[in-house]
Design a protein around this nucleic acid. Structure first.
Length: 274
DNA sequence: ATGTCCCAACTTTTGGGA
């Protein structure tokens, strides 16, 4: 009994044996359908914090008990049929923040954050935008301006990670064929300028820092066998504040989660910080 | 190939969204 208790305390008080922190993000395209996969992912990859997008659940349907049993605290911001974001943590979950607290929140349940240990972590689901010049593209850009203001609101010494489905591929090398996407959303100058603005505040696309060569994707359309053809995009990002970005050790896409029975169209992306 | 998946509803098919 004493042994068991000591082991449990050890488990709860230290994230990983080598003192790194592992933060992951995953657009699950319905947590109703993907719960078992998410629980298996927690077991297999042992993230300290997991950001989820497109839970497509109301708060009263969210599986708080299953995540508690897996050793995670959780907060969820959902609306039901569309959108929905969540944050799971086993290193603390304090001062929860729901949305921007502004008119941009009318575009859905797309942002949740909390202080996890010594790091602010946000799970973001950026509007898709549909097509350049559409009303939906307009609110994508307005939403990104609010995200920019949030990022800029933190001090230079604060560790902030804004992870999620940005629906933007930062570089041409982050898509399978830039020519095929001419005139489409996700790669337009306006959308990339929103990422560049975050960079002006010192935020870094830490996956790109780890993989300057590109060619690694996190999303593949369900249609047309896109995954097997390698037709993907890297649109699931971690933008990290300067002091946190310096701590990046590793970043990878867990492509196994795009395979098998009933995958999401997104694979999880995992980030290790020292 | 606008080719799939997921959700909800004026629900057993259809339409919206990605």
């Amino acid at each position: 009994m004493a042994n068991s208790l000591a082991k449990q305390i050890c488990f709860l008080s230290s994230s990983t044996p080598d003192n790194t922190v592992r933060i992951a993000t995953w657009n699950v395209n319905s947590l109703n359908v993907r719960l078992e996969r998410v629980l298996a992912f927690l077991e297999r990859q042992q993230p300290d914090v997991l950001c989820l997008q497109e839970t497509k659940q109301r708060d009263d349907a969210f599986a708080f008990d299953a995540f508690t049993a897996a050793g995670y605290q959780a907060i969820h911001h959902g609306e039901g049929r569309w959108n929905g974001v969540a944050l799971l943590s086993r290193i603390g979950l304090e001062q929860p923040r729901i949305g921007f607290g502004s008119s941009e929140d009318e575009y859905g349940a797309r942002l949740i954050g909390a202080l996890c240990g010594d790091t602010w972590v946000f799970s973001a689901y950026v509007p898709n935008g549909r097509s350049l010049g559409s009303e939906h593209f307009g609110y994508k850009m307005a939403w990104l301006a609010q995200l920019d203001a949030l990022a800029a609101s933190f001090g230079d010494d604060e560790q902030v990670a804004i992870l999620g489905d940005y629906n933007i591929a930062p570089r041409d090398s982050d898509v399978w064929d830039i020519a095929a996407l001419e005139g489409m959303t996700h790669v337009s100058p306006a959308e990339r300028a929103a990422l560049a603005s975050l960079a002006i505040h010192g935020y870094r696309d830490v996956f790109a820092d780890q993989h300057p060569e590109g060619g690694i994707y996190s999303w593949w359309d369900y249609r047309d066998g896109a995954f097997h053809k390698g037709h993907g995009m890297r649109i699931d990002l971690c933008m990290a504040s300067p002091v946190l970005a310096k701590r990046i050790q590793d970043a990878f896409v867990d492509r196994e989660e795009r395979k098998g029975s009933k995958p999401s169209d997104h694979a999880p992306v995992v980030f290790d910080f020292s």
